[in-house]
Structure formats: structure tokens, C-alpha cells
């Protein structure tokens, strides 16, 4: 499968997972135990995280905007996800360059994922960018710093759950993670 087709499929798959599964989680009582506000984990930023290393910045920005607007359409948030996703796409190059030993255009056809980076670097990379995304999104949504503790709780529980789902997605859809262990 070509890299374009694979990413297009991933776009649709992630939107469907986000909209049809994860958005429904907040409807259950166990998402608000003991006064903690109900929350939604966000997995759709993974689309930006998994684009190839050599993707130019302008394409990252436009792709982030498209993804955000699509999710906004489904969730009636009118531009908040798009804004957060564009910021995350802008930060991606900076984070990757500081995490990796080589320059980004030297990784020709590779994409950042568990197989190419290993678990710890990939999860660090995902955690940094998801934190950026979540904080920006919840600042936009709550709009103000009056209830900063409330915002902190919401970012934290949403972020932890998002990371768990990112890890689950990597386990499910990276076809050959196990080859690393076979080689040893």
C-alpha cells in the first residue's frame, strides 16, 4: 500500500474511532466518579503524529486543519479541535528534531511509530504533543483561567486516557512490532 493511501485510510479510521467509540465514553457513569467532570479521550491527533518524518510543515498544518474541522463537524465544537490540531502540527517538527539524533529529511520513507522509534521515545513524543493539544483545546473550551484547577484535572484525566488509547492503537495496528523481539 502506498504511503498516501495508507494515511488516507488512517484518517478515516481515526475519525470513525473518535466519533463512534470514544465520544460515547462520556455517557457512562464511571467517567465521572466522585465529582470529577466527565471527559472524552482524543485519539484523532494520532493522524498528525504518524505522518512520515519528511512531511513538509505546510502539509502538516493543512492536514491538521482538515482533521480538526472534520472532528469539529461531528462534535459541534465549531473550530476548537481545528485550532488545537493546527498548533500541534506546528509543534511536531520542533519536538521531533529535538528528540531524534539525525535531521528529519535523512529519514527517507520512514514514519514515526513504535517500530521505527521504540516504545519509550514514541510515547514521549506522543505525550508531549498530546499535552500541547489538550491544554490548548481545554483553554479554548473553558475560555479563561479562573478555574485553573478544574482545567488541570480535566486535561490530566483526558490526557492519561488518550495515551492509553494511543498505546492500544499502536499495539493493534502496527503489523510487525514483534519482529524487534524476534531479532534479539
Amino acid at each position: 500500500m502506498s504511503v498516501y493511501l495508507r494515511n488516507a485510510f488512517r484518517f478515516i479510521l481515526l475519525v470513525l474511532i473518535q466519533v463512534l467509540l470514544l465520544n460515547k465514553i462520556s455517557l457512562f457513569w464511571w467517567t465521572s466518579p466522585g465529582g470529577i467532570p466527565p471527559y472524552v479521550p482524543y485519539i484523532y491527533p494520532l493522524f498528525i503524529l504518524l505522518l512520515p518524518f519528511a512531511t513538509p510543515v505546510w502539509f502538516l498544518l493543512v492536514a491538521g486543519f482538515m482533521m480538526g474541522v472534520t472532528v469539529d463537524t461531528f462534535m459541534n465544537t465549531g473550530g476548537m479541535h481545528a485550532a488545537a490540531c493546527v498548533l500541534m502540527a506546528f509543534a511536531r517538527t520542533i519536538v521531533l528534531e529535538s528528540l531524534l539524533p539525525k535531521r528529519l529529511d535523512e529519514f527517507k520513507t520512514m514514519s514515526p511509530n513504535v517500530k521505527s522509534m521504540g516504545w519509550t521515545p514514541f510515547m514521549t513524543y506522543a505525550a508531549i504533543l498530546l499535552t500541547v493539544h489538550h491544554i490548548y483545546f481545554f483553554v479554548l473550551e473553558i475560555w479563561g483561567f479562573q478555574s485553573i484547577g478544574y482545567m488541570f484535572i480535566k486535561v490530566l484525566i483526558s490526557l492519561i486516557t488518550s495515551l492509553i488509547f494511543v498505546a492500544l492503537y499502536s499495539l493493534l495496528f502496527s503489523s510487525s512490532i514483534n519482529t524487534i523481539y524476534y531479532d534479539k
Binding site: 510543515v57 505546510w58 498544518l61 493543512v62 491538521g64 486543519f65 480538526g68 474541522v69 469539529d72 463537524t73 461531528f74 462534535m75 459541534n76 465544537t77 465549531g78 473550530g79 476548537m80 481545528a82 485550532a83 493546527v86 498548533l87 506546528f90 479554548l140
Partner: peptide
């Protein structure tokens, strides 16, 4: 480009918070 896209996002957010609502980006389409 980044600032331009952010500008578009913010105009969409401000539109969606009026009484009339945003006509394109909502799940009634």
C-alpha cells in the same frame, strides 16, 4: 500559514457561539 489557519479557526469558533449558529461546521449537515 499557521497564523492564517488559526485565524480561520477563531472566526469559526466565534461564529459558532452566536445564537444563529455556524451553518457549515455542525453535525446537522
Amino acid at each position: 500559514l499557521f497564523l492564517l489557519l488559526q485565524g480561520i479557526c477563531f472566526s469559526m469558533i466565534s461564529k459558532s457561539h452566536t445564537m444563529q449558529g455556524n451553518d457549515i461546521v455542525n453535525s446537522s449537515n
